[in-house]
Design a protein around this nucleic acid. Structure first.
Lengths: 159, 159
DNA sequence: TTCGCTGCAAAGGGTTTGCATATTG
DNA sequence: CAATATGCAAACCCTTTGCAGCGAA
């Protein structure tokens, strides 16, 4: 939940590990813009393909590096929950996710996950681990993921 | 939560997609044994290294294929929540997990996740997605992951 | 005897890295 | 001007696949 300009402003305030704030390059500005207001949880490759239309010789490496920086700064959330590509979420407030577990068959006859991922505004800070099962862990936060079938997969799979 | 023999028995009852039950080979029996009662959530490679001591020329491919079969049969749970290797859990009843978010620096000076993963007996079937956020999804189940620092990482990182 | 399984090595896919060069602050 | 970022290609890591021969039922 941010605009590209807000990201630029936030970055100018921040310090990275090295001590200096990230530099703002045209490539990065474009990546921020691509993330702006997105609720689709794009993959790095989604972002890459989108910015490539404007700066055709941008490299995937640049996209990955930039996204990783934003994650480190806490401006972006990285979701790595299906064993597939990471997905990125510009929304960083406490919320949950709803993920589709349907699969479809690709050209090579292989099952590929639908992977549709949606935000759910609710969070569940009240959930706790029973004392006797904490094993000395210092719990920082929790995450709730709801799994199910999206409307398209219900129809396709006859669920 | 099973013994190798229970797995064998369960498999003999099952039918695979092809119609016939999986065959029980010495390699597979050994893999079942390696999983028996394990609460450490081993990776495929952990299992591979363990069985390799007994059948030295077993291949990783065999381990992966066998684990995947067990997952398909619902005898084993695959956890793919850190973007790292999948971890396997012989416990298939409803439960939650506690994962360490600490990192350590490896020989190459890179941050690698601790990744310690523990079972938590509690599950939270009562959690639901507000109607207006379901977007037509048919929710099947949910998963709760508690993140925090394990005792070792607390000490090492001074948390 | 018939499928399914094995080990091997190669392919796959997503992500990261190393490096020479170009840019930002 | 110093410190970072860029693009490229190669490297990485985990996992899967294709295949010829072997072995369970």
């Amino acid at each position: 939940m941010f605009t590209a300009e807000e990201v630029v402003a936030k970055i100018r305030e921040c310090e990275t590990a090295g001590g200096n704030p990230m530099k703002i390059t045209p490539q990065r500005r474009l990546i921020f813009k691509a993330l702006e207001g997105k609720t689709t949880h794009p993959t790095a490759d989604d972002i890459y393909r989108e910015v490539k239309d404007i700066i055709p010789d941008i490299s995937v490496a640049t996209v990955y590096k930039t996204l990783n920086e934003l994650v480190k700064l806490g401006i972006l959330l990285e979701l790595k929950h299906d064993g597939e590509q990471s997905r990125f979420d510009p929304r960083t407030d406490q919320h949950s996710h709803l993920m589709c577990i349907g699969t479809r068959t690709n050209e090579k006859g292989r099952a590929v996950p639908c992977g549709r991922l949606e935000d759910v505004s609710t969070s569940f800070p009240q959930l706790t681990v029973p004392e006797e099962e904490q094993r000395g862990f210092q719990v920082a936060y929790n995450e709730v993921i709801f799994y199910g079938y999206c409307p398209e997969c219900q129809q396709r799979l006859g669920k």
